[in-house]
Design a protein around this nucleic acid. Structure first.
Lengths: 188, 188
DNA sequence: GTCTATACCTTGATAGAC
DNA sequence: GTCTATCAAGGTATAGAC
C-alpha cells in the first residue's frame, strides 16, 4: 500500500482497550480514544467505519482471543492442575496489570441500553471463562455441580477483587484473589 | 413554603440512585436523571445547585446511610452471627434487587478522572463495609488477620456476584453469593 | 418549586486536502 | 492512511415566567 499504517492493528486495539477499561464506554470519548492511540479521530473512523461501537466490539473480540491463548489453553494444557493455575495466575496478573486495570466486560456492561449491543458478547465471554475453570475443577476430581460452583466462585472472586482494587486504589485485593485461587478452585 | 415539593428528598435521591446504578456517571445524562425522577432538568438544578456531581455525591452519602442502618447495625446487633448474617442477606437482596441492580460504587468508580471527586468517598465506603464484616468475623472467633481476610473475601464475592449477575443477565451468581455468605465469613 | 426556553460546549461523525 | 476543518446532535447549565 502507498502509505503504511503508523500503528499496527494489534497495538491500536490494545491502546483502545486501555482507554475503554479506564473510562468505560460512555466515558471513552473519541477525543480520549484518539489521544490514547496517537491518531486523529478521522483516522480512527477510517480504521473503524462502524465508529465507537465497532471499536468496542473489536476490543472485546481481541480480549477473548487473548484469553483463549493465555488463559483457556494453559488451563487445558500440560502439568498438574496446580501448575496450570500458577501459569494462569501470571497471565491474569499481566492482563489486569496487577489489579490496576479493570475488567473490560464490567466497564462495557452498562452503557447503550439495558441490553446493549455488547450484552450477548459479554454473556458469552463470562460463560466461556466459567466453563474453562469448571473443566479444570472437574479434572481435579470434583463432580459437575461442585466444579461449576467452584468455577463460578473463582470468577466472582476475580471480578470482585478488580472492583475492590479499583475502589480502594490498592492491588491488595487482587493479590488476595491470586493467593486464594488454587484453594477456591481445586482444594478442599 | 408557598409551593410544596412534588417529590420528597428521600424519594428523589432514590430515583436518581437508580439511574446512576443503571447507567453509570457518564451514562446518566441530565435528561435520563430528569426522566427518572419525573422532574425537569431546571428543577433538578434547583434542588442540586452543584449539578450532576452534587447529585452523585448525595446519592453516595444516602447509600452509606442506608448501609449503616440496614447492614452495619444488624451486623453489630442481637442474635448469633448466623442470625445476623441472615438478616443482612435479606437487606442485601433488597438493596441489590436480587442481583439486578449494580453496585453504586462500581458504577461511579470510573468516570471523571483517575482520582475523581468520588474516589475518597468510594474508598471510605469499601473500607467501612469490610470493617463491618471483619468485626463480626472476629466476634465469631477468628483472629484479626483471619477475620480481615474473610471479610475482604466476602466483599469481593458480593461485588463479583453483582458484576457476574449483570453480565450474565441472571440473578444466579447473586444467589450463590448469599448461600456462601455464612460459610465464607464465619465457618470453617 | 417547577416549568419552558435557551445559551453554550462537547460529542460522534463526515468531507476533502495531502 | 492520516490529517485539518467542520457539522449536527446531544450534553450541561442558566434565565426568567408562573
Amino acid at each position: 500500500m502507498a502509505r503504511p499504517q503508523t500503528i499496527e492493528d494489534d497495538a491500536l486495539i490494545a491502546r483502545l482497550s486501555g482507554v475503554f477499561r479506564d473510562a468505560g464506554y460512555k466515558g471513552a470519548s473519541l477525543g480520549l480514544l484518539a489521544e490514547g492511540c496517537g491518531l486523529q479521530k478521522a483516522s480512527l473512523y477510517h480504521r473503524f467505519p462502524g465508529g465507537k461501537q465497532q471499536m468496542a466490539e473489536e476490543v472485546i473480540a481481541a480480549a477473548l482471543d487473548w484469553y483463549e491463548v493465555n488463559i483457556f489453553a494453559p488451563l487445558r494444557g500440560e502439568g498438574t492442575p496446580r501448575e496450570r493455575l500458577a501459569a494462569v495466575g501470571q497471565a491474569l496478573t499481566a492482563f489486569y496489570a496487577d489489579g490496576r486495570k479493570a475488567c473490560l466486560l464490567n466497564m462495557l456492561a452498562a452503557p447503550p441500553e439495558a441490553d446493549g449491543p455488547f450484552a450477548a458478547a459479554i454473556r458469552g465471554a463470562f460463560t466461556a471463562i466459567i466453563d474453562a475453570f469448571c473443566d479444570l475443577a472437574r479434572e481435579a476430581g470434583h463432580d459437575e455441580a461442585q466444579a461449576r460452583a467452584r468455577a463460578t466462585r473463582v470468577v466472582m472472586l476475580l471480578h470482585g477483587s478488580l472492583v475492590l482494587s479499583r475502589g480502594l486504589g490498592s492491588s491488595e485485593p487482587f493479590h488476595a484473589f491470586l493467593a486464594s485461587l488454587p484453594g477456591a478452585l481445586i482444594e478442599g
